[in-house]
């Protein structure tokens, strides 16, 4: 019983599908990057589900940002390490 509200995975797939035309018109190299962004949103579906935001796409955007920022921190750290090695 219940299950009137569609699951977070269904919602995600629907939102992603809504951008199919946008994706199709991108260059294939850009398509791959876009796919990566959606894949990173997928990493936080459970948090998005728990949030049950009225407009879930906002949560997906935030998840993409979160993963992007993680990557920036990782790269920063790496640059610092390389710098450290060079300076020695």
């Amino acid at each position: 019983m219940g299950r009137t509200v569609s699951s977070i995975t269904q919602t995600f797939l629907k939102e992603r599908a809504a951008f199919a035309r946008f994706r199709r018109a991108l260059r294939s190299s850009d398509q791959r990057v876009l796919d990566d962004l959606f894949a990173s949103a997928r990493k936080h579906l459970s948090a998005a589900s728990y949030a049950s935001h009225a407009l879930p796409f906002e949560t997906f955007l935030l998840s993409m940002l979160l993963e992007e920022h993680k990557e920036i921190i990782r790269l920063r750290q790496e640059v610092a390490e390389i710098r450290h090695v060079i300076q020695q």
């Binding site: 219940g2 299950r3 009137t4 509200v5 569609s6 919602t11 629907k14 009225a54 407009l55 879930p56």
Partner: peptide
């Protein structure tokens, strides 16, 4: 709802499209 299929997320999008106060309307 007798069919267990009220699509609240579509409703939310419709409310936003109409530029309504989403949470008040909900």
């Amino acid at each position: 709802d007798g069919g267990n299929r009220l699509d609240i997320l579509s409703l939310n999008r419709e409310l936003r499209r109409k530029d309504l106060l989403l949470y008040t309307a909900l």
